[in-house]
Nucleic acid binder design. Sequence first.
DNA 1: TGCCTGATTGCCT
DNA 2: GGCAATCAGGCAA
Length: 192
Amino acid sequence: MNHFAPEFFLQPTEQIARALLGALLVHETPEGRVSGFISETEAYLGVRDPASHAFRGETKRNAAMFGPGGHAYIYFIYGNHFCINVTTQKQGVGEGVLIRGIIPYEGIELMRQRRGNRPDKDLTNGPGKVCQAMGIGPEMYGHDFSQPPLQLFMAPADLSPLKTHEIVVTPRIGISQAVDLPLRFVLKPIDL
DNA sequence: TGCCTGATTGCCT
DNA sequence: GGCAATCAGGCAA
């Protein structure tokens, strides 16, 4: 399957966050393949963004953010959950895009199992839920989305399986700094 | 070392 | 709509 070239992740981070909407996020796991169309993202702008984990500079935890674009930055939060970002920009620049939601596509039954048979609407509508449903954990920290073996990768948008949509831009969720910046992008179906 | 907060979720009212 | 769970990181002492 087609996937993004490394150069894709060198565009302005907000632009990437918007462009990733509708892209297919794929994880090949021993239990099977799971995938979903990215429906919600947030841009985090590194040292110029007080809400970013990279704001205070590079540490062991956020090192992946400062690596080259197109890699996975995965973090553990609230003692319970993992969230996944795609890093952006060249080596040394700590920016990235948080994947906050997907529309399940392949491996939905596996997602239901991993999520404890919750209602389908609650399967992948949050950053922690995305990681749990797709079986993404800290072992994928730093994974390269553009180089083989492509165990975890993203394919450019093919919205044919989806309804007509529009992109809604809002402030980011769950932060206490830079709360007004319009850096959250949501794929919203249009009822025709 | 101790305290507080957090890019969240799910259960309870 | 409110709040507990649960722990790693950041900062003050």
